[in-house]
């Protein structure tokens, strides 16, 4: 009763894998976007800001469809990726990770940006006068002081990735063992006669997973905040 079935384990592990890669690959871009939005002014900044937040406000199905058009085998980018590198993203777990990353991106950027805006630019100036180049200042002062925000962003993005459904099913479909993550497996069970018990089990699994991630982040954030201390 309490042990997981092979199918459940498969969906569970796939979800973890998809969320892990989604967060890992999007993190550098998330930090860059957050930094651009927090610290730079450039033409088209509000457009850029809108673009970053787009996945938050348009239907996930639309994002999934956009990804399919762009990254599908016949898509502009997808065709090129297949021709040059032989990589297929659509209808594979990699595509699921891309969909999750895109959907979680605004949350990640928001958290990091808020934290970046809290870093006192005067500290960065002080580091410059001590002989540090802008890049070194970023790596030794700005980034360490942004760690709490990065951590929050990572956990939020991870949790969002675990729950990603609409964009995923549109972009990479619902393929067992390849793209059927927890939410997709749950959806499948709700569409199956007598699937209620299985659905309930997956529901509990999802809740436990999300809570565990959230508690871990709280713990880490508190520990780091203690280390950074106040000004």
């Amino acid at each position: 009763m309490w042990s997981l079935s092979p199918l459940e384990i498969e969906a569970f592990m796939l979800s973890l894998k998809v969320a892990f890669w989604a967060v890992l690959v999007s993190l550098p871009f998330g930090i860059l976007a957050a930094w651009l939005l927090a610290r730079r002014s450039f033409p088209g900044k509000s457009l850029f800001n809108g673009l970053v937040h787009l996945p938050l406000i348009i239907p996930p199905v639309a994002v999934g469809y956009l990804l399919l058009v762009l990254l599908g085998r016949n898509g502009a980018l997808g065709g090129w990726l297949f021709d040059v590198f032989g990589i297929t993203i659509a209808f594979s777990w990699k595509g699921a990770a891309v969909a999750a990353a895109v959907m979680a991106f605004p949350l990640m950027v928001r958290a990091i940006r808020l934290s970046l805006e809290m870093v006192d630019p005067h500290l960065e100036q002080a580091a410059r006068t001590l002989g540090a180049s802008p890049l070194r200042v970023f790596l030794t002062v700005t980034l360490p002081l942004t760690v709490p925000g990065i951590l929050t962003g990572v956990i939020l993005a991870f949790a969002r990735s675990l729950g990603e459904f609409g964009a995923t099913i549109t972009f990479v479909s619902n393929i067992p063992g390849e793209t059927r993550t927890l939410p997709l497996a749950l959806y499948t069970l709700t569409q199956t006669p007598d699937g209620e018990l299985g659905a309930a089990r997956l529901l509990i699994l999802s809740v436990v997973l999300a809570l565990a991630a959230l508690m871990l982040s709280e713990m880490l954030a508190r520990r780091i905040a203690r280390q950074l201390g106040g000004g």
Binding site: L123, A132, G229
Partner: peptide, 20 residues
Amino acid sequence: VPPEGRRLGYVFQEARLFPH
């Protein structure tokens, strides 16, 4: 010359120590 190349020590009104 950028600030990091000027070799001028700067002590600010608020100490501006790195908290981390």
